[in-house]
């Protein structure tokens, strides 16, 4: 018998284990939906691409949360920041007569500013990240109301032109009842979101900063002893999350094209839930961007299924997501406590 045969198989890492659960869950959910709800549109490829269109912003925001959660922190301000960005951009485009490029710069700037402040308070003043970003969330929400109270629709020509760009997917589509082929399409935001997913995946896997994030989140003390600058790593994790919140906010604005005070309410919880469902450990050190992508898709699928079934009352989405969130949080707690023994 060869030596390889004798070697004990290594148990899968937590990251791989949680990622497998997530992907299997998504597959099972979507296949069941296609089987049982095929007549409600689930068999059309466009339904899947609509998931991406609808949740491009959430993908980017959840990626940001994964980054900060891997480093052992959390950011619950992203929903508020998104609302602030939408409102500021729409006011800038409509009332101040600004251009599209300016709006993009504004949204990135707002996100970056929140990220820098959060990062400084958490990494260098060592304040609990939850408190800091909770304050950030309320500040963003309040500031949104102070910018403008009414709901505004963006009518800027350049903006609407960009938001209406549809990229057709060659060879994929469905036939209407008359037999006309309708190709499936994605919006421009999806390209940005997927690009960010790939970039972050590579960054987390192959760069010094990315590996540092895992080390800091897993055990800050050992990371310090290994010569990693813990404070700086945490700081840049928040800055990156802030920047991604800026991108996500812009994509959200691009999709909805309007700004209002109540917009994107609960988006931070969706993002956190997606990230957790995607296998990111809340205690830090474990997580995967691909899992996060699937986490968002699972959330979207649940929403689509609940709408398709037409369940009694709109509250079932919230309850299902929370139940799923609860399941994953408890699962994580069991995994971490098993590891400590």
């Amino acid at each position: 018998m060869s030596r390889n045969g004798l070697r004990k198989r290594e148990p899968p890492t937590d990251t791989a284990f949680l990622l497998t659960i997530t992907i299997c869950m998504f597959m099972a959910m979507y296949i069941l939906a296609v089987i049982f709800l095929g007549d409600k549109g689930f068999s059309k490829p466009q339904t899947f691409f609509n998931l991406l269109n609808e949740y491009a912003a959430l993908i980017v925001l959840s990626c940001g949360l994964s980054v900060v959660m891997i480093s052992g922190g959390i950011d619950i301000s992203v929903g508020g920041v998104t609302a602030l960005i939408c409102m500021t951009c729409v006011v800038y485009l409509e009332d101040a007569g600004g251009g599209f490029l300016g709006a993009v710069l504004i949204s990135l700037g707002i996100g970056l500013a929140f990220g820098v402040v959060h990062g400084f308070l958490v990494a260098y003043l060592k304040i609990q990240p939850f408190i800091v970003t909770l304050a950030g969330m309320f500040f963003a929400r309040g500031a949104t109301a102070l910018v403008n109270l009414d709901q505004v629709q963006a009518k800027n020509a350049a903006f609407t032109a960009v938001s209406r760009v549809r990229i057709l997917i060659p060879g994929v589509g469905s036939f209407t009842k008359r037999g006309v082929f309708v190709p499936a399409y994605i919006e421009i935001g999806v390209i940005v979101a997927l690009l960010i997913v790939i970039l972050l995946f590579l960054m987390l896997k192959y760069t010094k900063f990315g590996r540092g994030l895992y080390a800091v989140g897993g055990n800050a003390q050992s990371a310090l002893m290994l010569g990693i600058n813990v404070s700086r790593t945490k700081f840049f994790a928040y800055v990156l999350t802030g920047l991604l919140a800026g991108v996500g906010g812009m994509l959200y604005f691009l999709h909805t094209g309007s700004g209002s005070v109540v917009q994107a309410s609960g988006l931070e919880m969706d993002a956190i839930a997606s990230s957790i469902i995607g296998g990111t450990l809340l205690s830090g050190g474990v997580g995967n961007i691909i899992g996060t992508l699937f986490g968002v898709l699972i959330r979207g699928t649940i929403y689509t299924i609940v709408t398709a079934i037409g369940a009694q009352g709109p509250w079932w989405t919230g309850i299902t997501i929370s139940a799923l969130l609860c399941f994953f949080i408890v699962l994580q707690s069991v995994i971490t406590s098993r590891k400590k023994r």
């Binding site: 929400r141 109301a145 109270l149 005070v261």
Partner: peptide, 8 residues
């Protein structure tokens, strides 16, 4: 709606 900003 703007009050939370000051409290934050």
């Amino acid at each position: 709606e703007g009050v939370p900003a000051y409290k934050a």
